[in-house]
Nucleic acid binder design. Structure first.
Lengths: 251, 251
DNA sequence: CTGTTACGAATGTCCGGACAATTTGTCCAC
DNA sequence: GTGGACAAATTGTCCGGACATTCGTAACAG
């Protein structure tokens, strides 16, 4: 018996709603395989086309992934907000280094002690390369930021490419190793410059500054780069524009 | 005559690729209406189902919008990077006010002078309501932020709801007027507290603080709320996690 | 001139069927 | 055991058709 059509609700929406609830409530846990298209067709007494439309919605919501030969797998048990980054100012998440050059001051290989392990989110003793440098404007006449970066030892090879580069480090890693950032965690806080920091930045002690810490993670959620940048307030404002994507609700 | 199938390329991908190039190159400008599904079916000699699959891809890339009775309209002439916000910390873009209460200090109606017009991105003389308040923790024992907000006079009605609210103002406007933010522009900068600011925040003069300015815009890109918040550094770090969406390329 | 109605055009919602491509696992030969 | 051939299950790619819903506009009525 065909399930009766609810007023104003397309059939695929009914199915999508039901499956969404099952996923959000945990009846299907993350990693579980949903019933096959054929099974859903039988269960809801709808055509395969309609079933696929329903599953397409779940996919658009980021709840499931689909693979031929495998099935429909639950990817996430909550619906995340989606943003589209617009504009291309110097300070955009991925473009903040545009028109700037990175001059290396110091490079060392380290094994993470307790402090570093906490910062980097790794176990004690893990091997990293540490780098200290300044970002200067393309002409080289103004220091914009002081940066400490930690790079997983695996990608040590980029160290040679960094001095004088006008690209972010993660981008150098990408072109050399093919590692793309899949997730970026950032913390932005306010601070005042210490004597030593002010010296490197040709600013005054006590001046306000923005401290931006970014963790770059691979698809497998391994941290492979951490960058901590210090931007004197008068030379830098972090700004971005986010456009909210209007996701078609399943209901 | 049916267009021959390129090796490894589904038919819909060929169509999607062709249309994408036409949009990116500007042959179809933003706002233009693409040929109808029927026309594309004839042009490429494919079924309507295949045509719709191609257009679905363009939609997923954010290049077009589709409306029944109208057609497929070009929305953007470039492919933007997509981020998905994950996590739900206190400082997430839309959740930063969680577990906090807003206490109003002062409310006034203003007409924008030159300074205000520049800040709000409106013409001089436009009518706004200005509000000064502090965000305190739920228990009320700690001041977390000092906030100046400007609300378009049209939504003046929310002013009565604000004192003591534990929601962001835009959220109050949404529930009362049905206005949803479609775009948010934010600037984050570092500063040090002035004497007066420190007093309101029970902090010390010269302490570092984060100044976050947010413009909330409607779908039509009208600014309807501007919030400027001052967070003493030791009580607040702005942090968020962005997951990069792997958009299926059309090719 | 203004408000209403009617029509056409476009996308949205469904159904049916067929074959291709991908993946996983089983079974057999070596 | 190990490797390869094979089969089964699953999603992906296409085709055809039918009717519903939405929206702009043109014709019409007042």
């Amino acid at each position: 018996m065909r399930s009766s059509r609810v007023a104003g609700q397309p059939r695929y929406a009914v199915v999508a709603q039901a499956l969404t609830e099952d996923i959000l409530s945990g009846r299907y846990s993350v990693g579980a395989i949903l019933p096959s298209e054929h099974a859903l067709c039988t269960q809801f007494d709808i055509s395969r086309h309609t079933t696929r439309e329903a599953l397409r919605r779940l996919q658009a919501l980021g709840l499931v992934t689909r693979r031929a030969g495998v099935g429909t797998q639950v990817k996430s048990n909550h619906i995340a907000q989606r943003y589209v980054q617009v504009g291309d100012t110097i300070s955009d998440l991925y473009q903040y280094a545009k028109d700037m050059v990175l001059n290396v001051l110091e490079m060392t290989d380290i094994e993470a002690d307790a402090d570093a392990a906490a910062l980097l989110g790794c176990s004690k003793g893990q091997a990293w390369s540490k780098l200290r440098g300044v970002r200067v404007t393309d002409g080289g006449d103004e220091v914009v930021a002081l940066m400490d970066a930690y790079i997983a030892r695996t990608y040590r090879g980029v160290l040679g490419d960094i001095d004088g580069a006008d690209l972010p480090i993660w981008s150098l890693i990408e072109s050399r190793y093919g590692v793309v950032p899949a997730e970026v965690r950032q913390q932005i806080s306010a601070t005042t410059l210490s004597r030593a920091e002010a010296e490197n930045l040709s600013a005054r002690e006590g001046d306000p500054a923005l401290r931006i810490t970014r963790h770059y993670l691979t698809e497998a959620l391994d941290v492979y780069e951490v960058a901590i940048s210090l931007y004197p307030a008068e030379r830098f404002t972090y700004s971005n524009t986010l456009r909210i994507e209007h996701l078609a609700s399943v209901s």
